[in-house]
């Protein structure tokens, strides 16, 4: 593989807008993905991730804005871009009655350069399934096959739209390994996800998307740091919790959120917040029914930015 490092980004778009009759799916999006990085678009359902990625893939036309991929434009260099990009779509169902190997042969035949079919099978660890019908594969195996199809032309830039949605933890990890190998070989990835842990585990940089625009951008670490609170204390009491003003006045607390009867305190000083909270509850005579803490995540970033959770479930 020969990825010449250049100054031009792998991908850049400016002022991207896509309108549908009853919704503006993408509302003025600026984005830049550097060569060799893994960039994640993180956002809830309906945020406009698929619309954005399909415009970048040249499958949808934008209403406004500029897109440049690998220094090329879709209007003038479509054929070249098709050869240099790998695409996995959110909803594609490959033919059920072809085998894994036949499916890969088909996709491989569209490219004049790339790994052999056997190499592709090994890359996604589907060698043992080469003669199975696609319809008989598990969800995780299907997704790995979809990624193998996307890798058939040895792409420089790989687009993945929610590659692990609906998969069990083990299958997700297996897919992450495949992506890790692609990156180790110098490939660039743009992926969308609504799993914060996936963005954490895979992405060098993350753009948080909501309502068709980016509401935050940075490395996972920067984003988590941006809420000024490294930890979250979650608790519930029988009866009414203390008023928000009271909770805000506890040492270290930066943010107070309520959800399903739980209260979440974002804090920069876990060691000071927890004892103070317990004292306060004891004074009030409130019976604690739940107490937990975790390091702040991208989920907490999203909550602190929008007041909502990434997933409704």
């Amino acid at each position: 593989m020969n990825h010449v490092p250049t100054d031009s980004p792998a991908l850049a778009c400016r002022g991207l807008v896509k309108r549908y009759p009853d919704v503006v799916a993408v509302a003025g999006l600026d984005l830049e993905v550097r060569r060799g990085e893994c960039f994640g678009l993180l956002g809830p359902n309906g945020a406009g991730k698929t619309t954005t990625i399909e415009i970048l893939e040249g499958l949808l036309d934008q209403d406004e804005g500029d897109v440049e991929v690998l220094g090329r434009r879709w209007r003038t260099d479509r054929d070249e871009l098709r050869r240099r990009l790998g695409v996995q779509l959110q909803e594609t169902q490959l033919a059920d009655k072809l085998t894994v190997e036949e499916t890969l042969r088909l996709f491989r035949s569209f490219f004049t350069d790339g790994p052999t079919v056997t190499e592709l099978l090994d890359l996604v660890e589907l060698g043992a399934k080469r003669a199975s019908w696609v319809g008989k594969l598990s969800g995780g195996q299907k997704q790995r096959l979809a990624v193998a199809c996307a890798l058939a032309g040895r792409p420089e830039l790989l687009f993945l739209d929610e590659p692990t949605t609906g998969l069990d933890p083990q299958s997700r990890r297996q897919l992450w390994d495949v992506l890790g190998r692609f990156r180790a070989a110098g490939g660039t990835i743009l992926l969308t996800t609504h799993y914060m842990d996936e963005a954490h585990a895979l992405c060098d940089r993350v753009g948080i998307m909501d309502g068709g625009t980016l509401i935050a951008l940075g490395t996972p670490r920067e984003l988590v740091a941006s809420i000024g609170a490294a930890h979250v204390v979650e608790f519930a009491v029988e009866g009414a919790p203390p008023a928000d003003e009271v909770l805000h006045s506890l040492p270290g607390v930066r943010d107070v959120r309520h959800r399903d009867g739980h209260v979440a305190l974002a804090t920069s000083e876990l060691h000071a917040t927890v004892p103070a909270l317990l004292d306060r509850l004891r004074q009030d005579g409130a019976a604690l029914s739940l107490l937990g803490t975790h390091s702040a995540t991208l989920e907490d970033v999203f909550v602190s930015l929008t007041g909502r959770h990434l997933r409704d479930d």
């Binding site: 098709r82 996709f107 569209f110």
Partner: peptide, 8 residues
Amino acid sequence: KRLVATPM
């Protein structure tokens, strides 16, 4: 749609 995303 997937096929159209290749050089086919």
